[in-house]
Design a binder for these strands. Structure first.
Length: 455
RNA sequence: GAGGGCGUAGCUCAGUAGGUUAGAGCGACAGUUUGUGGAUCUGUAGGUCGUGGGUUCGAGACCCAUCGUUCUCCCCA
């Protein structure tokens, strides 16, 4: 028998890890609820049709597909073979895979809204905390199974939603004590730049290229632009665009100078300014940074886009989002605009672990271990334990009669602070010996008073 | 999809230019101690060196393949 192992890019979470993760989930969840978002859960799998074509060509390849059952049945042989042929032709084949694991939470949400738009109250605000799966190559901060925490508002055009969502970000990371900055840009600004440089159809090439700026530097970006057919003068404009620096106000002023006669750019600036100004008063505006090099891969975004970056670490973005004007039209229901944000919990965990930001208090465990010193003694201990449990004190009894040594070590390893020893002597006097493992102090307490003891 | 690092005991690793029966620390278990742990000491168990082939008188070490893992690029959270 070979050693058991885990699929690539997946992890087990032990007790300590689960507690820390729960701490993050709880923190984010309570902020979502504070802002009026309601929970939603959707299935791990969706119909392949629902997911395909929504994440771009690259994204489609990363969708985990689920092999249909019953492919080996003789009456389905023809169908199966057709499916295989489609597969080799580079197409997706529902003959082989009708279902797939969800790739993110946004598209399933859009599907949900499209299916239920008749009965939902708009604006509809929901949050969702569930795992998603990607058939990616794992590396630092990248897993094949990871959790997303999304909050979206659909059915409202108002920029007040963007304002509120930025507040959600800042509040949640404030609670987590994780210093971040939220980069903001507007797809409309990028669109304007594309119009300036040869046409809207170049938007995607353009965004992909400039998104790499901080990673590969201008030289390489320029090479990529050149290979995508941008002319020298266009490259020059893009370079000027990317060189915009300074405070938010200064950046916006420079952008106006450069591309101010483009309607789309102006609209983008207006929206960005609106959100930034709203936060001027909150005192947290410093964490909101206009960054015109921010692009974001997903193509369904149409307005403001955001990305959260943890300060002083080389971890990639730990959250992102943006406005999409027409996601549900993918599912036949037009005119439901929306805006959403997402938290990358696994990366947040990694950063917090790296920076030692988890409060020690979140590790909770058994408070009291009852020693097992024989059948009769154990019965008495069990009675006392039940009383403490009724008082909501976490207790356990060592399941077998063993040497003190062993039972002490168990308590120690598990971080149980108190042990209660009930042996024949104590049994006779109807009392128990309580020993604090950390201080070594031992006290004798009558059975009748144990329930009132403050652990 | 492209490229690099690493796979030796439960864990972390050592293993010198290929040379006898493959080592250490930690951990586990047992004893010192059938009712008071953490320490010390003593002892015990645990490895077909990821797998398969090749070179060699001889391979944990060298070569090839394969699997696993990890990191970088692409892309993304």
């Amino acid at each position: 028998m070979s050693k058991p192992s885990l699929p690539q890019g997946t992890r087990d979470f032990n007790a300590a890890t689960v507690q820390k993760r729960q701490y993050i989930f709880q923190t984010i969840k309570s902020v979502f609820e504070l802002y009026g978002f309601q929970a939603l859960e959707t299935p791990a799998m969706e119909n392949l049709e629902t997911l395909m074509g929504k994440y771009g060509e690259e994204g489609d390849k990363l969708i985990f597909k689920i092999l249909n059952n019953g492919l080996e049945l003789p009456q389905k042989k023809q169908q199966t073979l057709e499916g295989v042929e489609k597969l080799f032709a580079g197409k997706s084949s529902t003959e082989l895979t009708e279902r797939a694991l969800r790739y993110d939470l946004t598209i399933p949400f859009a599907r949900y809204v499209a299916m239920n738009h008749g009965s939902l109250t708009f604006p509809f605000k929901r949050y969702q905390i569930q795992p998603v799966w990607r058939a990616d190559r794992p590396q630092k901060g990248r897993y094949r199974e990871f959790y997303q925490c999304d909050a979206d508002v659909v059915g409202s055009d108002s920029l007040l939603n963007e304002v509120d969502l930025m507040s959600v970000y800042l509040k949640a990371f404030e609670h987590l004590k994780l210093p971040v900055e939220v980069k903001m840009n507007n797809r409309k600004i990028l669109l304007g730049l594309a119009q300036f440089c040869g046409g809207e159809e170049k938007l995607i090439d353009l965004t992909i290229a400039i998104d790499k700026l901080d990673k590969i530097g201008w030289e390489k970006v320029q090479e990529e632009l050149k290979s995508k057919g941008f002319s020298d003068t266009q490259q020059k404009i893009i370079q000027q665009y990317l060189n915009i620096t300074g405070s938010n106000e200064e950046k916006i002023a420079q952008l106006k100078n450069l591309l101010g006669d483009n309607a789309s750019v102006l609209k983008g600036i207006e929206e960005l300014t609106y959100v930034l100004q709203y936060h001027q008063t909150s005192g947290r505006s410093k964490q909101l940074v206009a960054d015109f090099t921010l692009a974001r891969g997903l193509n369904y975004y149409t307005g403001l886009i955001f990305e959260v970056k943890a300060l002083n670490t080389d971890m990639g973005s730990i959250g992102g989002g943006g406005r999409y004007n027409d996601l549900t039209s993918l599912f036949g229901v037009p005119n439901i605009p929306g805006v959403g944000i997402s938290f990358g919990v696994d990366r947040i965990y990694d950063v917090m672990e790296e920076k030692n930001l988890f409060p020690p208090s979140i590790e909770q465990t058994t408070q009291v271990l009852f020693f097992n010193l024989g059948e009769e003694e154990a019965q008495a201990a069990y009675e006392q334990m039940t009383l403490l449990r009724n008082k909501k004190i976490a207790c356990e009894i060592y399941p077998e009669k063993s040497k003190f040594d062993k039972q002490f070590k168990y308590a120690e390893k598990k971080g149980i602070p108190n042990v209660i020893i009930i042996g024949t002597e104590e049994l006779g006097k109807k009392e128990c010996n309580l020993k604090n493992i950390n201080t070594g102090i031992q006290t004798t307490i009558p059975f009748a008073e144990l329930v009132n003891y403050k652990f």
